[in-house]
Nucleic acid binder design. Structure first.
Length: 259
DNA sequence: ATGACTGGTGTGACCAGA
């Protein structure tokens, strides 16, 4: 089973790219972030025509997350983290699908830092850590996929010294990510490729993609039950080179079917 | 230290992203 995560940066603005990518790579389950569309403007018909069922949590202008599936209807479990109001920014959605519990997240960016946006990021991160701990205790196969807005290590950024004061790379943010992994989660891409530069984001400025000046900020975290089912993974880097594309590239993993 | 791009909103001298 192939699962992918993709920050589309506008599900309607970048719909042709999304549909082409779905057609060419045919993931079974897809987590989308930054829909940038209200609930009623989600392009459900086009998604269905591409062969997917979907649950989504939209919002006007910003944020927005969705889970798509071609292996059965996703059963929505929640659309905000515990402790958040139902009208909180749409940054999390969770569903049972394909024999997995899938959490799709869009963690706050946090810039400019320091300031209220960094505080909000760290608060959100704490709530997410608490929820992740709860999910682990349920001992079912869980995938937490999405845009974490965290550069975990120096290996994950083209020029670390340029990012030391940035909310994606601050020590307390990286520490929060380390704490999350220490609960027992596996960073799937880094586990498959311990020593390689892997980038999932290239900003639109200064020909970042052409210079391979990227960041690794989109991650797949796997619960212990899934660690031994991880077969392969990668970044669909070519998609970042298409016309009218997102600033993120899709990331995917391949899981062995359960015994 | 700043700005370069981009989408969405709305037609801003906008905001926000990473």
């Amino acid at each position: 089973m192939r699962i992918a995560t993709y920050n589309v940066n506008g599900v309607n603005g970048h719909l042709p790219v999304l549909l082409r990518w779905l057609r060419e790579t045919a993931p079974d389950i897809v987590c989308l972030q930054e829909l940038k569309a209200p609930q009623e403007k989600f392009p459900l018909t086009a998604i269905q025509e591409a062969g997917y069922q979907a649950v989504w949590h939209g919002q006007k202008s910003w944020n927005g997350v969705a889970i798509l599936s071609k292996v059965g209807e996703p059963q929505e479990i929640r659309r905000v983290l515990p402790g958040e109001e139902e009208d909180a920014p749409s940054r999390y959605i969770e569903a049972r699908v394909g024999g997995l519990l899938v959490g799709c997240l869009y963690l706050p960016n946090g810039n400019p830092a320091p300031g209220p946006k960094l505080d909000y990021k760290l608060d959100w991160f704490r709530r997410f850590q608490d929820h992740a701990q709860t999910l682990l205790a349920q001992e079912e196969p869980v995938v937490l996929a999405g845009d974490y807005n965290v550069i975990p290590t120096e290996m994950d950024v083209y020029r670390p010294e340029s990012w030391t004061a940035d909310a994606l790379f601050l020590p307390e943010v990286r520490e929060a990510y380390r704490q999350l992994l220490a609960q027992g989660w596996t960073d799937a891409l880094r586990t498959l490729y311990p020593n390689e530069k892997i980038y999932t984001f290239y900003d639109y400025f200064r020909n970042a993609f052409g210079r391979n000046a990227g960041l690794r900020i989109d991650h797949f975290l796997l619960s212990p039950a899934l660690r031994n089912r991880l077969k392969a993974g990668g970044v669909d880097r070519q998609v970042r080179g298409w016309e009218k594309t997102s600033d993120h590239a899709p990331v995917w993993i391949e899981l062995e079917n359960p015994a």
